[in-house]
Design a binder for these strands. Structure first.
Lengths: 349, 349
DNA sequence: CTGTTAGCGCCTTCAC
DNA sequence: GTGAAGGCGCTAACAG
């Protein structure tokens, strides 16, 4: 009862429908110039034979690949907060692509293999394996790679990744305004001594968040000490150690702004260990709104990024650009949303 | 200073190297029958022209695609613990594939779109877009789809996904032994009244975990009440509600085994809210060893799955099977590791 | 509107 | 060890 294995091809359909392969091809590709009568015969033949076009042959003939590349550059081993950040994006990208004719290819590079970065992407560019590239990374992919991408004339878009030499093709979000809002929030709660535990400076988002902190300090005319600013890995243990150092300093802040939720959790842990309380003794804020921020006690005041809409916008613009190179992909900066929870409170008298 | 855009092809290399396209093709494909002299000339020509084979043409001619499909079936919206489970797998799969000639394609279906499940995969099978398929799901993909897969003769492997009609092509892990070990552990700590908060029964891992619980109950000759067994969504709030129900019951357990870490967190939250302590009043265990289990207080006794080795094994076997259909993909069951932490303790007198 | 045919770029048998 | 040529399955330009 096995279905016949002989691959049915265009020619077979043409023969059965009593038309030429050209007509069948046109029908397949929705050309307007196929008579109703032929169309009907062809569709019947297709149904009867169970014909399915061979994508590779189509693509070769058309010179396209009908697939998009999602290129991810990340740390290795990848930190869990990065996962939590990336997966909604990957999923949204796929959801969008699913409804189109494109398929999705995945490729990853690791920050640690410096000289490898870009090679892979280059490979994809060179043999035209993909029609467009989505680049997902919180680290710079290297301007040389951006240049190569531009030269390749293959449509691409950077997701949450900024390039200095590029005034378009990027979908970013507004880290700066988010942290500024957090700073205002703490100020309104009476905080005047605010510390910062930020991530490493090679991470683009962290740079922007740090800048917002310093600018807000100035804007709000707040006290500042070098010892109140720490840079750590983006994980719980990093935030923990940084907070310990801050706690060892003679002048104590009343609030700590953290570059992400994981570090905020670590900071809270250090605070509790010394017998202090959050937010009674120290207010703490995070960034990412990941599950941890909702699970620890107290829940963390944090920032939610528009991951889904970022992904959708990116793919939409990319596909438009592929279809019509005139439609360029602009630079967009999406707003974030501060989520107020109980880890930040009024400063204690 | 732009590099010439003319696509250099096999013919160009052949002309420059002064050999035929056939010889160049053989050289490209590492045929033994190419003289050293020709090889040298060809390589020089390739270097000079910057020739890169057109993959699509190669594939069409060879009748292969050189790409593998990672097919994921999951809930929508996806729960965070699922993300945490999947990403290490995805990453390991890619890492392995990266070192091979294959590229990776991604496709996802959602459990909620019942009639959609399989269609997508079928598409991939039918037009030979991929050489092999890796299926990642904690839910059954439906036996009809398994049958179709088998009929298609396309190599495939199920990851952490079990099919009753299949005695091979699956890499699983041993949920059953892990929970049995957890039960033993609690028993040794003096617990004789143990409750279960498990996930939904359509999730395959949860079924096995539940079975291990019930079998252990019998094996250890433990007390049992219907009210001690709850099924909830796989998230924190589910565990929370289930635990509340258990706490409302007149007969109280001394330990609660949870189907995953998220539910364990929820259970602990409910316990604390009633003024009880973990593990002093109730021991709680989870499953997954995800970041939450390490972040909450107390840290959760849980189970670590061999995600990385599962992924690597799967891809390795799959690729072997593609290269040589004789080498079948066996059924493997990988052991899990119980991670003992402070959420489980000796029962209080 | 439709048939014919030359590609798309490469692989692979078949002779030599 | 190598060249010639048909074929992979489909598209698109050209006639008609």
């Amino acid at each position: 009862m096995r279905i016949k294995k002989h691959k049915v091809k265009l020619k077979d359909v043409a023969r059965l429908a009593n038309v030429s392969v050209g007509t069948v091809s046109r029908y397949i590709n929705n050309h307007p110039s196929v008579s109703k009568k032929s169309a009907k015969k062809i569709q019947e033949a297709i149904d009867k034979l169970g014909y399915i076009p061979n994508l590779m042959a189509q693509n070769l003939a058309k010179g396209v690949s009908n697939s998009l590349l999602l290129y991810i550059l990340q740390e290795k081993p990848i930190v869990e907060s990065t996962w939590l950040y990336e997966l909604p994006i990957i999923q949204s990208i796929y959801d969008y692509i699913k409804a189109t004719k494109y398929s999705l290819q995945l490729a990853m590079d690791y920050l640690e293999d410096v000289q490898e970065i870009g090679k892979l992407m280059n490979e994809y560019i060179n043999n035209k394996r993909v029609d467009g590239i989505i680049i997902l990374s919180t680290f710079s992919i290297g301007e040389a790679n951006v240049v190569r991408l531009m030269d390749s004339e293959i449509p691409f878009v950077l997701l949450g990744n900024q390039s200095a030499i590029l005034s378009s093709n990027q979908i970013l979000f507004d880290n700066y305004s988010a942290i500024s809002e957090i700073m205002d929030h703490l100020y309104e709660l009476g905080h005047r001594r605010i510390a910062l535990i930020n991530g490493f400076e090679n991470q683009q988002h962290m740079i922007q968040r740090g800048k917002a902190y310093f600018d807000s300090l100035k804007r709000l005319d707040l006290e500042f000490h070098d010892e109140w600013v720490k840079y750590s890995n983006h994980a719980v243990d990093g935030g923990y150690k940084s907070m310990q150092e801050i706690l060892d300093f003679e002048k104590q802040p009343t609030a700590i702004v953290c570059g992400n939720d994981d570090m905020a959790v670590g900071a809270m842990k250090a605070i509790k260990e010394r017998g202090f309380r959050v937010p009674d003794d120290y207010s703490v804020t995070g960034f990412d709104d990941n599950i941890i921020s909702r699970v620890v006690e107290p829940n963390i005041t944090t920032v939610r990024m528009p991951l889904t809409s970022m992904a959708e916008t990116a793919v939409e613009k990319l596909i438009e650009n592929i279809a019509d190179p005139e439609k360029e992909i602009p630079l967009e900066v999406l707003p974030c949303k501060v989520i107020y929870r109980s880890s930040s409170g009024r400063v204690r008298k």
